[in-house]
Design a protein around this nucleic acid. Structure first.
Lengths: 153, 153
DNA sequence: CCTTGACCTCAAGTGGACTTGAAGTGGCAC
DNA sequence: GTGCCACTTCAAGTCCACTTGAGGTCAAGG
């Protein structure tokens, strides 16, 4: 499988595949001339990486967990603590969502006069004092609609 | 209220206050010599900004909503759509949290052999095809424990 | 054989939200 | 009146996960 094929199968851009390889997150099984050749397992590996990212792990954290060899020791404590992080995040998001929904239909002249809105303000301020905010993958920019553009297929 | 006072009251670093002012998110009521003087309302304003950030709005979006004058038209449609975004995010996070919790106690030799884990993989991959991912404030770095360091108080 | 264009490398750029550093000003406690 | 240091400005740096561009190589189809 060449890089274009891997990109197509996984949905991950070729540039990202090179970047991941450089970071040690994936490996190519060899080269044909200059060109990387990937084994079929790279697809699963990429799914694993996407999973980690979705869960809020950084690439560096993922690199440690899914070590360079095969699939390695995914530290269960780490998973559990990440789950807790997510849980509290979910709580905050839920409050935020409900607050937003209310604000969207709230009849108060000014939002500042609405008790629900004020409650929301407190939630937000509370978040301020948690510098440990987990964070989600990233609101990526996506320059262009990712057109495959002339893959030799 | 000088900038140090505003920083202390709001919990927002002075550098950020300057940055926000430059961006037009807050305003100082005047100067004493070089020094900015803030009105008491800046605190509420900052809470409002924190609220917007928590809900996933960018500073630019917030700048538009909480316009330069007083407190302006917070577009209700926008709020509702942000609530929907949050809602779907909550759904993904919840799946992720549950998956992580399971993985943390899963008895399967390899996570790859666990059906729940595979389901999780699918969730993650699904997320891949949503470039519109909302995103949360930011996994800020927080250089030092933010010591007030000799505020004249 | 020769062109083509997909692949390669390496350096630099991007974006959002700030932070940091250098150099300068001036309010206020003494 | 004067020294200190909190404030000022402006430019540049940071972080993360990539993307983009320039300049180059080479496998394969015609």
């Amino acid at each position: 499988m060449d890089i274009a094929e891997a990109a197509k199968r996984s949905g991950v851009p070729a540039s990202t595949l090179r970047f991941y390889e450089e970071k040690g997150l994936i490996r190519s099984v060899g080269r044909q001339g200059l060109r990387r050749v990937f084994g079929p397992d790279v697809i699963e590996r990429l799914a694993l990486i996407a999973l980690g990212r979705s869960a809020g792990f950084s690439l560096d954290e993922i690199a440690v967990m899914y070590a360079p060899d095969g699939r390695p020791k995914i530290d269960r404590e780490r998973l559990a603590s990440k789950a807790e992080e997510l849980d509290s995040l979910i709580g905050r998001f839920t409050a935020m969502r409900d607050g937003l929904r209310h604000a969207a239909v709230c009849p108060a002249k000014s939002h500042l006069e609405c008790p629900s809105f004020k409650r929301l303000l407190r939630v937000a301020s509370a978040g301020l004092f948690e510098p440990k905010a987990p964070g989600v993958p990233a609101p990526r920019k996506m320059t262009a609609p990712r057109k495959p553009r002339g893959t030799k297929s």
